[in-house]
Nucleic acid binder design. Structure first.
Lengths: 208, 208
DNA sequence: AAAAAAATACCTATGAGTAGGTATTTCTTA
DNA sequence: TAAGAAATACCTACTCATAGGTATTTTTTT
């Protein structure tokens, strides 16, 4: 009997999973939680065989909870439940120690397969993983080492975070817009961030 | 003799302005400051006829200083010095009480004109003002009242701040991308923010 | 029940960002 | 001084965002 603890702030989702697993004779849900803290308490109480947890939950989120659980209950594998394209958060979960993740869009068979693999000390990653997650899985340590930004790149990054367009930055710095775009391209590559929004957030979190 | 106090964290800029005004027999710089606090102290000490101040300075910025000065030295007009397209900051300066603003790219003749106008209780706004600043000048009170965002708009705004594209949001919410774009358009209009970056910042500053 | 607000959807046009690639010049370092 | 790094510049192609405008349906409020 595989005993499962599940955390998700959507009760209907939990109910759905419970219904699915009710039809699997060797799997049972022994605990439910609505946020990370509840999940930790449930694990402490029930000592399940596996944890299924959503990433984004109010209060203590899945990432923080997984980090705590893998540090204190390393024998319990964690399967991250991902809503959809949330690659950065998925990577955070994997970094925190999750043994796998599965897209909520996946079918019940895939869920059962994932649970079995993790309980057997394996890993499971939804087929529809993004390139970045895939890259991280191949070389976790490599992606970790970011190339340092040049002085100019840092300057331009700050202007980007100020909301300036490439054209505005070009005029300001008296260079070609092409040059700005090239710097942007290099910044994206070095920081492994694909979007402008990501860059803005990076600046707000790391360069204040 | 028009006595000027000037604040800018770039000494070279101050020196340049001083050199320009040295050639104007009836204008003289009586005080320099590198940030907002120094500017306030200089005004208290020198009681100039006019204040010229940059917007973005380390420590206490121009906006905070202008607010204080217009509250406590309302007889001293303030001319905001704008680097270039900084419409939000320019509006903040005008809101704080500046009597005018001038683009740093403007020529010395324009600077002298602006100083004269402000000292004579008038206003001066660089010709190359943006549409938003122009709109604010026409109807300061009107722009002030922002229309509240609907529930759906707030939801979409958060997803935008998560870095999701319109297409991703549409898939997530199971609606048309056209619908998402329309909501985005309405959000931009209601918040009077033109760029995605601006929206992200708005969320980070106001919706956590 | 009617009116107003919200949500949904679409079209067009243009601006802006991203990413692949190439190349030269300038600056810095060994 | 030569090599390497950084900065500059450009092209192409594609995706995405913005903004003007229109319209219908659904939901909420009066």
């Amino acid at each position: 009997m595989i005993r499962v603890a599940i955390a998700d702030d959507h009760q209907m989702f939990i109910d759905g999973i419970r219904s699915i697993l009710d039809n699997v004779s060797y799997i049972t849900i022994v605990a439910e939680a609505k946020d990370g803290l509840e999940l930790i308490k449930a694990v402490e109480k029930e000592n399940p065989d596996i944890v299924l947890t959503d990433i984004r939950m109010p209060g203590m989120d899945g990432i923080a909870a997984v980090k705590y659980l893998t540090e204190n209950y390393s024998h319990i594998p964690v399967l991250a439940l991902s809503m959809f394209d949330q690659e950065e958060e998925v990577i955070d979960m994997l970094k925190a120690g999750a043994a796998g993740y599965i897209i909520k869009k996946a079918g019940k068979d895939e869920l059962v397969t994932a649970i079995q693999k993790l309980v057997n000390r394996g890993h499971y990653y939804s087929d529809s993983i993004s390139a970045n997650v895939h890259k991280w899985l191949e070389n976790p340590e490599m992606v970790e080492e970011l190339t340092p930004l040049t002085k100019r790149e840092r300057q331009i990054l700050k202007l980007i975070a100020d909301g300036k367009t490439s054209q505005q930055i070009a005029r300001f710095l008296k260079i070609s817009k092409y040059t700005v775009d090239t710097h942007r391209k290099n910044i994206h590559k070095k920081l492994d961030i694909k979007t402008n929004t990501g860059l803005v957030k990076y600046v707000l979190e790391n360069m204040q």
